[in-house]
C-alpha cells in the first residue's frame, strides 16, 4: 500500500524498473491523486541512464582467439581406399557366411537323427528316448566316445543280459540310436577293438570323453560257428586279456591237462589191480 511514508521508495523502484504491473498502477494512481508528486516522479525517471551505443571497444581483434580449424582429409587416390574397403568388406562377409554355415551344420548334426540304420549291423542299444547322437561325437575306434556332460548318457542296456540287441527292435523309434555291428553273415566279432557304442546326448553341451573300452571288453560275445549259430566259448576266451596272454594260458592249461591225464591213468591202473603198491616195513613195494 503506497503512502506518504513509502511513495519515494516506489518511485525509485519505478526508476529501477523493478515494480510489478499492479504496483506500477498503484503508484500512478497515488501520483494522480497527489499531482504535486509528478515532478518528483519525473526527476526520478530522469536519473535513469541510457548507454551510449556509439561507444565501442576498438581492440576486439586483439582479444579474439584462434579457433581450431576443421580437419580436412584429402583422398587424392580414392580408388586405392575403395579397393581396400572392398576387400575388407569381402573378407568380413566371407567370415560371416562361414560362421553361418557352421552354425547350420552344427544344428543339423545335433538335431538330425540318423536317417537309416543299417540292418546288417548290430550295435549296443542306447537307452534313451530323447537322446540324439550327432555324427561328430560318435566314438572313435580307440574306444573313447565323446559325450557331453550333465546329460543323460544312456547306459548300454543289453550288457547285463549279455545279448546282442535285435536290429528291428529300435528301428521305428525315432529318438533312439542303435549301434550296430557289421555282420552280414550274422557272425559277431569281438566288439572291443572296433565297436563303439553311440552315446546318446542332448544338444549343445560341452564335450567330454568317456572311456567305454572296459565296458565293451566286458561284454560277453559269442564266438562264431560254422553253422552260424553261436557256440559256447571257453573260459580262456572269455577272459578280458590279450591274445598272447591267452595263448600262454592255453599252454599252461595243456601242461596241467597232460599231467592230470597221466595221474588219472596211473590211478585207473591201480584201480584195475594191474599194479599193486604196498608199504611193508617202511618199504614201498610195487607189484606188476
Amino acid at each position: 500500500m503506497i503512502g506518504w511514508d513509502n511513495y519515494e521508495e516506489y518511485m525509485m523502484m519505478h526508476a529501477d524498473g523493478e515494480l510489478e504491473p499492479a504496483e506500477e498502477r498503484e503508484l500512478m494512481e497515488f501520483v494522480s491523486a497527489h499531482p504535486e508528486l509528478k515532478a518528483e516522479l519525473k526527476a526520478y525517471s530522469l536519473t535513469r541512464l541510457s548507454p551510449d551505443e556509439t561507444v565501442v571497444y576498438t581492440g576486439k581483434d586483439s582479444l579474439l582467439r584462434t579457433e581450431p580449424a576443421k580437419r580436412v582429409i584429402a583422398f587424392p587416390q580414392w580408388w586405392r581406399y575403395a579397393i581396400a574397403a572392398g576387400v575388407a568388406l569381402l573378407l568380413s562377409l566371407s567370415f560371416y557366411k562361414y560362421r553361418e554355415v557352421n552354425k547350420i551344420v552344427d544344428s543339423i548334426a545335433v538335431t538330425n537323427i540318423p536317417a537309416t540304420i543299417t540292418p546288417k549291423t548290430v550295435q549296443p542299444i542306447m537307452d534313451t528316448n530323447t537322446a540324439v547322437v550327432p555324427k561328430e561325437i560318435q566314438a572313435p575306434k580307440s574306444g573313447v566316445a565323446i559325450v557331453t556332460p550333465q546329460r543323460k548318457i544312456a547306459p548300454v542296456t543289453d550288457c547285463k543280459q549279455h545279448k546282442v540287441a535285435p536290429i528291428a527292435r529300435e528301428e521305428k523309434q525315432e529318438h533312439r540310436v542303435a549301434a550296430v555291428k557289421d555282420t552280414t553273415t550274422r557272425a559277431v566279432q569281438p566288439i572291443a577293438p572296433v565297436e563303439q557304442p553311440q552315446v546318446a546326448v542332448e544338444k549343445e553341451q560341452p564335450i567330454i570323453r568317456v572311456d567305454t573300452t572296459a565296458a565293451v571288453a566286458a561284454l560277453p560275445v559269442p564266438e562264431a560257428q560254422d553253422d552260424g549259430m553261436p557256440k559256447k566259448r571257453s573260459l580262456i576266451d572269455r577272459l578280458p586279456i590279450d591274445e598272447s596272454n591267452k595263448n600262454q594260458l592255453r599252454k599252461l592249461f595243456r601242461v596241467v591237462k597232460g599231467t592230470y591225464n597221466g595221474v588219472s591213468k596211473v590211478k585207473q591202473e591201480l584201480d584195475t589191480g594191474e599194479i599193486t603198491v604196498s608199504v611193508e616195513d617202511n618199504k614201498l613195494r610195487v607189484s606188476f
Binding site: 519515494e8 521508495e9 525509485m12 526508476a15 529501477d16 515532478a39 518528483e40 526527476a43 526520478y44 530522469l46 536519473t47
Partner: peptide, 14 residues
C-alpha cells in the same frame, strides 16, 4: 545502495 544513488542523482537534477 541503488536507492541512495538515485536520490543523489535526483537531488542533483532538481
Amino acid at each position: 545502495y541503488l536507492h541512495r544513488a538515485r536520490k543523489i542523482l535526483k537531488e542533483y537534477l532538481v
